Amino acid sequence: MKTAGGSDAAKRQAGERAAEAVEDGFVVGLGTGSTTAYAIEAIGRAVDDGLDVRGIPTSFQSRQLALEVGIPLTDLDAVDGVDLAIDGADQVVDDADTATDGALIKGGGAAHAREKLVDAAADRFVVVADPSKLTDRLDRSVPVEVLPDAHTVVADRVRELGGEPTLRDAERKDGPVVTDNGNLVLDCAFGPIGDPDDLATRLSRIPGVVEHGLFVGLADATYVGTDDGVEVRTY
């Protein structure tokens, strides 16, 4: 498998280590992205060996991979709860001396609305990442999923908050990216984000916003894969 950013070995280490946390009978949230794909593949191999689990995919991509590797699937409304969610991140705060330790930016794959729903429902949410995703302060653009009719209004409100919104364009079709939910994505640059929790609250209050890519206070641990092993951060 070829992946973008970080080494394949580091991503595999993180994904496969997270898969080891899956126990018999678990309902597992299956995140989206290149690192999480290694976890899904590892869970599929465990299913082949007799592990009894059900997966809840967070995107078309993760659903297709889960089906390919033989993981039985279900939905949030068909289960009593989610035991464990495994998901990647575009950026993770790695600074134990700050209140923002473990805050994330997600949504590079435009699946963050479904990801946040599943990750927040889980008893335990584990992030899988390679060292290139670690930072002492979030500074990537924040993906904001918006209703199509609301994107210009939301863009104006984002500018009032000090951000610079850009409608995400599709790479292999004319026009914008359309999410699995049928919505559009604004990538909103705020520069270094000193208070992710406050910005998350302000973005959520904007009418027309379906969900944003700031995940604050949700992660229980981050498994950071390296070429030699895995480092675990807990929050």
Rank of each mutant, 00 (worst) to 15 (best):
69 V>A: 08
67 L>D: 10
61 Q>G: 01
80 D>I: 02
82 V>G: 04
30 L>E: 03
68 E>I: 01
101 D>N: 15
55 G>R: 03
91 Q>T: 07
41 E>G: 00
101 D>K: 12
56 I>R: 11
48 D>A: 14
34 S>N: 04
24 D>T: 15
58 T>D: 09
62 S>N: 03
31 G>K: 11
103 A>N: 12
26 F>E: 00
52 D>V: 14
89 A>P: 04
96 A>Y: 01
97 D>H: 13
102 G>V: 09
56 I>D: 14
69 V>M: 07
38 Y>Q: 08
105 I>H: 05
82 V>S: 04
109 G>Y: 05
53 V>H: 14
91 Q>S: 13
106 K>R: 12
26 F>M: 15
60 F>L: 15
106 K>S: 08
79 V>W: 13
97 D>I: 01
36 T>N: 14
59 S>A: 12
22 V>C: 09
76 L>F: 05
57 P>S: 06
86 I>S: 09
47 V>Q: 07
74 T>K: 11
107 G>Y: 05
109 G>C: 08
80 D>Q: 13
27 V>A: 10
103 A>Q: 07
31 G>L: 09
98 T>M: 10
78 A>D: 15
82 V>T: 02
41 E>R: 15
88 G>F: 05
25 G>D: 07
99 A>H: 11
95 D>Y: 03
30 L>P: 04
23 E>V: 13
52 D>F: 10
87 D>W: 03
37 A>M: 06
65 L>C: 00
41 E>S: 07
65 L>Q: 07
33 G>I: 02
27 V>F: 10
37 A>Y: 01
67 L>V: 08
87 D>H: 02
108 G>C: 07
88 G>T: 03
39 A>L: 02
25 G>P: 04
78 A>Y: 08
33 G>A: 02
72 P>Y: 01
101 D>C: 13
48 D>N: 08
44 G>R: 07
34 S>E: 02
81 G>N: 07
61 Q>L: 08
87 D>Q: 05
41 E>L: 06
50 G>P: 09
78 A>G: 03
58 T>L: 07
109 G>H: 07
33 G>F: 01
42 A>Y: 02
58 T>H: 04
66 A>F: 00
51 L>A: 10
83 D>R: 10
51 L>F: 11
35 T>C: 02
49 D>S: 14
106 K>M: 07
102 G>A: 11
56 I>T: 12
90 D>M: 01
31 G>M: 10
92 V>W: 08
63 R>E: 15
54 R>I: 00
74 T>R: 12
23 E>H: 14
102 G>P: 14
103 A>E: 12
90 D>W: 00
39 A>E: 04
31 G>R: 09
30 L>I: 05
102 G>T: 09
67 L>S: 10
73 L>E: 09
53 V>Q: 14
66 A>G: 02
30 L>C: 06
105 I>C: 09
22 V>R: 12
67 L>E: 15
109 G>R: 07
76 L>G: 14
97 D>V: 10
30 L>M: 03
68 E>S: 12
25 G>V: 11
37 A>E: 06
105 I>R: 06
30 L>D: 02
66 A>H: 00
78 A>Q: 15
70 G>L: 06
99 A>F: 05
29 G>H: 03
75 D>Y: 11
99 A>D: 15
67 L>M: 14
